[in-house]
Design a protein around this nucleic acid. Structure first.
Lengths: 216, 216
DNA sequence: CGAACGAGTCAACAGGGTGTCGAGTCACGG
DNA sequence: CCGTGACTCGACACCCTGTTGACTCGTTCG
């Protein structure tokens, strides 16, 4: 099917369409993966499904990716980049009140994952069995923890927050909460907080944990 | 191997050793599973491993359990029963101070899972792919949430705790934190809180979330 | 032009896992 | 001794993964 399409892409720019076909296929595989993940869990998607979805045979799939998980990893790298950008913007943005700063950070965190529901759920699933996925998550988690720990220490230093457990431990505990609460809310199994209440509830716990009775 | 063993068990009691052999085998499979889980993750254990570990062939395994996950489920049922017993004891026990009550509850929660590290990690892994495991966990989680929500409401009613987010939402958020923090601490991948600090840190977050600046 | 090359492609295979079927064995109770 | 029910497993059907080797087809270069 679609045999007639003979690299009409980027024709005007001329000069060597090298790997034009290949890039298309790669993209198609990624899109197929994202599409299939919307309708069923990662475990129910085979390499053959991805290959056929992209109009190629299974062996050809392996020409582009070393495994099914590698496709997921590529997809996740994008989300990670997006999340990092958002996170940096939020942490560097001007904060008038502490409450507002934390609120914005939590909303950004929540928003990023909510915008990629299927991917987030698949991520959680793959983390259980794939070491690379686990490592990628650990990396993201660690960055978030460090930023939060830094802020908590700053708040303590300027006397806005009382002393307490090691800032890092507190950050780990609270970030763990975020992760699990959001994951449960998105995957929909088990008791979960209603989507619209996720951020307010988390915010409340964060503020209490960092400041005791919250400011304002 | 061990062919010579000809049901010498329960010989004195006489009268039909019906299913004596079978019960042994079933037990042996469960023990094998628990033993193998100490040394490698669930995904790296095949039905054949379980069967050979119990000295039987793969088809015979299916006489006792419908699948590998069913073995895990049986193992988990025991832990759940134990956890429920502990939990009930803790919640019904006399509490002199609120702080002490929560501290005891969190320590019990943490202790139950720490005492079954391998099983807890396997549980988390299986939850990603198996609906029954997910359902069992949801049940346990829900019971814990309800008990906590009830206590939070009682504390608010008697004026010990200030109003805040729906008690149930707060309970879900905090229980989610427990789950993830303990799971990370036991599985050892990614940033985690040191084992001995898990309960103190969680306690601090719980008290702040429920009471604002904690009592005492 | 024609050989050489590299990207892209896939049928066929090897290997490992799951779950099932049917034909057994064996110890009792009638 | 003959059934019956617990128990056992060789062999099979299937599904999935990852690899191999041959093949097509543009491009490039002598």
């Amino acid at each position: 099917m679609s045999e007639g399409a003979r690299l009409p892409t980027a024709a005007g720019r001329g000069r060597r369409p090298a790997r034009a076909r290949g890039d298309d296929r790669e993209l198609l595989i990624l899109e197929t993966a994202e599409r299939l993940l919307e309708e069923r869990p990662l475990g129910a998607i085979s390499v053959d499904d991805l290959a056929r979805g992209a109009g190629i045979s299974r062996p050809t799939f392996y020409f582009y990716f070393p495994s099914k998980d590698a496709v997921l990893l590529t997809l996740l790298d994008r989300v990670v980049a997006e999340a990092d950008a958002t996170m940096t913007a939020v942490f560097d943005g001007s904060v008038t009140a502490p409450r507002e700063g934390w609120q914005r950070a939590l909303a950004a965190y929540h928003g990023t994952f909510r915008d990629h529901r299927a991917l987030t759920v698949a991520w959680a699933e793959a983390r259980a069995t794939n070491a690379e996925v686990r490592a990628l998550w650990a990396e993201v988690f660690e960055r978030w923890v460090q930023r939060c720990a830094t802020v908590i220490e700053a708040e303590r230093a300027r006397g806005a927050a009382p002393p307490g457990p090691a800032a890092r431990d507190l950050a780990i505990a609270l970030t763990s909460m975020n992760e699990r609460v959001i994951s449960a809310s998105l995957s929909g199994d088990g008791p979960a907080i209603a989507p619209d209440d996720v951020v307010p509830v988390m915010l409340r716990v964060w503020l209490n944990a960092v400041y005791g009775t919250p400011p304002d």
